[in-house]
Write a protein that binds this DNA or RNA. Sequence first.
DNA 1: GAAGTCGCTGAGAGGTCGCTGAGAGCCGTT
DNA 2: AACGGCTCTCAGCGACCTCTCAGCGACTTC
Lengths: 225, 225
Amino acid sequence: MRVLMVDDEVRLADTVRRGLTDAGFAVEVVHNGEDAVWAASESAFDVIVLDIMLPRLNGYRALAELRRRGVWTPVLMLTAKDGEYDQTDAFDLGADDYLTKPFSFIVLVARLRALIRRGGPERPVVLVAGDLTLDPARRRVERAGQEITLTPREYGLLEFLMQHRGDTVSKMEILESVWDPAFDGDPNVVEVYVRYLRLKLDAPFDRHAIETVRGMGYRLASDGG
Amino acid sequence: MRVLMVDDEVRLADTVRRGLTDAGFAVEVVHNGEDAVWAASESAFDVIVLDIMLPRLNGYRALAELRRRGVWTPVLMLTAKDGEYDQTDAFDLGADDYLTKPFSFIVLVARLRALIRRGGPERPVVLVAGDLTLDPARRRVERAGQEITLTPREYGLLEFLMQHRGDTVSKMEILESVWDPAFDGDPNVVEVYVRYLRLKLDAPFDRHAIETVRGMGYRLASDGG
DNA sequence: GAAGTCGCTGAGAGGTCGCTGAGAGCCGTT
DNA sequence: AACGGCTCTCAGCGACCTCTCAGCGACTTC
């Protein structure tokens, strides 16, 4: 059973490594996010222990990058008790379990065994509207099984619309959420990006997922159009 | 947060119920598909946990039936590891997430939270008058389940009438609320818009929701006409 | 039944809104 | 330095929405 331990607290990492080795695991340790992504991509681990606070590439970014690369090794995240991040965010990004520091070593071993036993990693929550799917962890959008590539802005807009699928959202709401909470420019930019999305999501499939509600805003059909 | 747990493995269902209760959820448990549909239709849950293998009506059929009835509560499906179904089928049928048995309880809780969070805030009250409904959040108007598209002005007028359904409201009250508090033009514009609403809401259904009270104003029938 | 008031209706002018194509500015890459 | 991708601005256009107006019918009052 191979474990990749990622933590920049050298002392803690070393303690854990020794304990896990005694428990029969083969352990590799790296201390920053970039090395973690590299190590996990290069060779196959059964499970990854990933701290959030990391130099160069923090735990969330590293996890997202791994999932984006198609690495689905189960990940147990280590979160500080009162960190700035919402712990459940970890799940949205494709983590499979988490532990709050400080943690009991026995619990860690038990969780790791459970993750390994359970096998494949859990799928992150995927937004669905008919045959339109958006996977936040992999930052991937598909219609009818076909991948759609979007720019960051287009992606942000679609994610917002899908989070509110079925509801009518105003351009100002969109601007405040997808652009800037203090946006005060021309709302026309939303129209422009809605058009871009329609050209990529609707036109090629002869569908109409994004409806215009004149005078109010836009609505993404719950069934994907 | 109310959870409906549907599973015919009594032992498992009970364990989950206790765990969720400890985690602060209000849990209701049923053990077959028909009861699930009934329970979910009768009262509002924040999320439904639905096993696939169920007596009387299996999970897929139950889910389809719920959606058919317009129940859009988020559903997390439980799938057996090597079942006959492809897991991704769940998405096609309108499930919002799934977990493979056996699953980690911690993951279940996190997923439920994510689903509830994703579902957004509680819907505001939907205005109802007979078979006429107006949903302010979705900005959607329906008569007998059929969507009616309204212009902003028409929508504003109908919203006002439905807020005062059963009461007679004068044209001046309408003008001050729907048009402008300092409106001083010709009240005839209200007559014109009442007509537009009648053409869209009443005429196609051979109904008379909006009554004229000569010399007084208008009244929207509480029972929708 | 005549006169007056009130509400209904069809037509249309004018304004607003959203859509669209073109292109400028800004990056990061080659 | 040139290029390509991304973001955003802008102005023209067409469709839609709002409101006005005048004629007519219905109801009320005398």
